[in-house]
């Protein structure tokens, strides 16, 4: 056997089976990594919307004082603002169609960078919301639990407090990175593998 033999059989191989029917064109769900990420982002949008609605009731359920209610209102408005901005960006990504008829390099790089950009945007939103939440918790402790908080602060050294802040930021960072990787990372990894294979000299 040699490549000429294989080529001859390859070219002689006919396509058996029934013809492709119009039913095949009616399927809406594509299965590229971009489509997978888009579908997940769509779900996340609904979850986020649900939590934002749920957040409206927190001041009433938790029995916030007037002072902390005002802080909460600012926090809530900021969260809504950032979420709306990022979800507008995700919506643009969602609606941006891809062109599979480009050459492979252009196509694969478009997929890779479009996915990477949106995963980074997703991480940025997660960081922002996490820091807003931490900021609100701090304000809550200062305003609502001032005496307890003051006692804790006087008993702790500044080095410990700074270390604590650093560890909190680190934990937020690790959780965000891991979550983004768990949720979207494998799609990025698959496309990156093809990019590397194409670039391999």
């Amino acid at each position: 056997m040699n490549f000429d033999d294989i080529k001859n059989e390859w070219n002689a191989e006919s396509s058996e089976g029934n013809n492709i029917s119009t039913d095949m064109l009616k399927i809406k769900q594509a299965n590229t990594p971009i489509d997978k990420i888009r579908a997940k982002m769509k779900h996340e949008f609904y979850y986020q919307l649900f939590f934002l609605l749920l957040m409206v009731f927190i001041p009433f359920l938790a029995g916030f004082s007037t002072a902390i209610k005002q802080v909460y209102l600012i926090t809530y408005a900021t969260t809504c603002g950032f979420t709306a901005y990022y979800f507008f960006k995700f919506y643009t990504f969602y609606k941006n169609s891809y062109d599979m008829s480009m050459d492979t390099r252009k196509n694969i790089l478009w997929f890779y960078y479009e996915m990477k950009l949106n995963v980074e945007l997703y991480k940025a939103l997660t960081y922002i919301i996490a820091f807003i939440a931490v900021g609100f918790m701090s304000a809550y402790l200062f305003i609502e639990k001032a005496s307890v908080f003051a006692k804790i602060l006087t008993n702790l050294s500044p080095v410990f407090l700074i270390l604590n802040c650093f560890i909190t930021i680190l934990i937020i960072g690790v959780i965000t990175e891991l979550w983004a990787w768990f949720y979207y990372g494998r799609y990025l990894k698959q496309v990156k593998k093809v990019v590397d294979e194409l670039d391999y000299e």
Binding site: D23, M24, N31
Partner: peptide
């Protein structure tokens, strides 16, 4: 290009045309 970026389905039952009859 489709084959290069294709990701195997997690759930085989998702959005499928009746394949056996059509292809």
């Amino acid at each position: 290009n489709t084959a290069l970026v294709y990701f195997k389905k997690d759930n085989k039952k998702v959005d499928k045309a009746p394949l056996d009859e059509n292809i």
